[in-house]
Design a protein around this nucleic acid. Structure first.
Lengths: 239, 239
DNA sequence: CGCTTAGTTGACTCTTCTCAAAAGCAGTGG
DNA sequence: CCACTGCTTTTGAGAAGAGTCAACTAAGCG
């Protein structure tokens, strides 16, 4: 089914009934493609759909007065971009495709009905929103309290676990379709510094990159180095 | 009623029925006091109650391996500390009283029943969780992309609007019961630097502090200076 | 093969941190 | 009411991390 990536994610919380799965599938209006760098939703909009990412990476971001962009979250397959719009009047940030993306447009009306009437599914959806919030908190700590090299290491640990959880990584490597500019807009530093810190991580033999593939050479060491504790991801699967 | 501060907050979203209000009041098991610096909930716990802050300021925080504390959110009267626990297994962070606090303990069971059965109230509660999440995103941008002086200015703007929304401020000033150490643990900088930046804001004639009272001398200028856009607070009241 | 975008490097500047120590304030007990 | 104590705020000076600017190299694409 179209919504399989979402179902897989939600079932980390609890097994869904076939009816719930169908209700979700049923709410999909259509699937759209976005090119890298294209906006999926813009700040100020009140979208008619809830967007579910099926393929590719997207990012939540805000643009500051000075023209600076800050990326606040990465979205990967199975992630909902904007359940917010079921309850908030308008988007307070934008969401852009970071790589070519495939997105399912879910009827806002049907989604709201699901949240109101399907107890279990509704819980699973709010659970996933709460996990997103927990991730946001961890990123806040990362930016506020970790030095640049550990920030990056921490992010890499997180994205390995998250891609793993949705079957996008089997070994200790994953496809990271981002430029160093995008990474630095996420970690609150300049590209130049990001570049140097990445080199340092390579130098410490913690990671290796082959094109767009990020290879973790020593996961235990990388987690240790960055002070990574996977608790906040609230994943059920053990690692 | 005990839960009045929460009701006032939720009614920013939509007027609640008397029955919904009573259901909330009914879920309160008792009210407890916490001294400043006392923990209300600790990481790893699975509390039996949902905690509603009635008086005082509290903060979400995490302690890093190196012993560094980072504060990720301020909670003020009307804020729920941990609706998370209705769906997540354990707290991934701690919550501590920053000033003496009065807290209502709400039955977890009854809260879950409310979320499952009271459509409107449930929406209002999730709405408030989404606003918290939006605030978290803004803090992330603040830490990632704003210079130290603007960070502080931005935080002060936010706390003025939030205290106003719950009737804790009428003019352009509010009670800020925090030490500079706590402020700096929030903004990801050292106390020394926090102190200097506060002096700078005073020097620019933007703020003034009298004991624990923060007085904004020129709100428009402070908002302008910090690049503050209140959209993310999703407040209904105009300012 | 040429063009454009992404990654890398060097030298210099500026913000923020570190380490200390002084000064101010508030609560406590005599 | 004062001395004492502990915490918070403030200052100073030097060090380190991160930003800036600018050029150069490498890689992807038509």
């Amino acid at each position: 089914m179209t919504v399989d990536p979402l179902i897989a994610k939600l079932e980390q919380f609890r097994k869904l009934t076939p009816e719930d799965c169908e209700a979700l599938e049923d709410a999909v209006v259509r699937v759209t493609d976005y090119a890298a760098r294209e906006d999926i939703i813009q700040q100020g909009e009140k979208p008619d759909f809830v967007h579910l990412l099926l393929e590719g990476w997207a990012g939540r971001y805000k643009i500051l007065a000075e023209g600076e962009r800050h990326i606040m979250a990465y979205l990967i397959p199975g992630d909902l971009c904007d359940i917010h719009v079921t309850l908030l009047n308008q988007m307070d940030h934008s969401i852009g495709a970071l790589s070519p993306c495939k997105v399912a447009l879910i009827s806002l009306e049907k989604m709201m009905r699901i949240l109101d009437t399907r107890e279990d599914l509704s819980r699973a959806l709010w659970w996933s929103a709460l996990v997103d919030e927990a991730t946001l908190r961890e990123w806040l700590v990362t930016l506020g309290a970790r030095p640049a090299d550990k920030r990056i290491a921490h992010l890499i640990c997180e994205m390995l676990l998250r891609t793993r959880a949705v079957g996008l990584s089997t070994d200790d490597s994953f496809e990271l379709p981002l430029t160093q500019q995008e990474l630095s807009d996420t970690m609150g530093m300049t590209v130049v510094h990001m570049n140097r810190m990445l080199q340092e991580l390579r130098g410490r033999n913690l990671i290796e990159s082959k094109g767009k593939r990020m290879i973790i050479k020593d996961l235990a060491a990388l987690m240790e180095f960055s002070g990574f504790d996977p608790l906040y991801l609230h994943q059920v699967a053990k690692h």
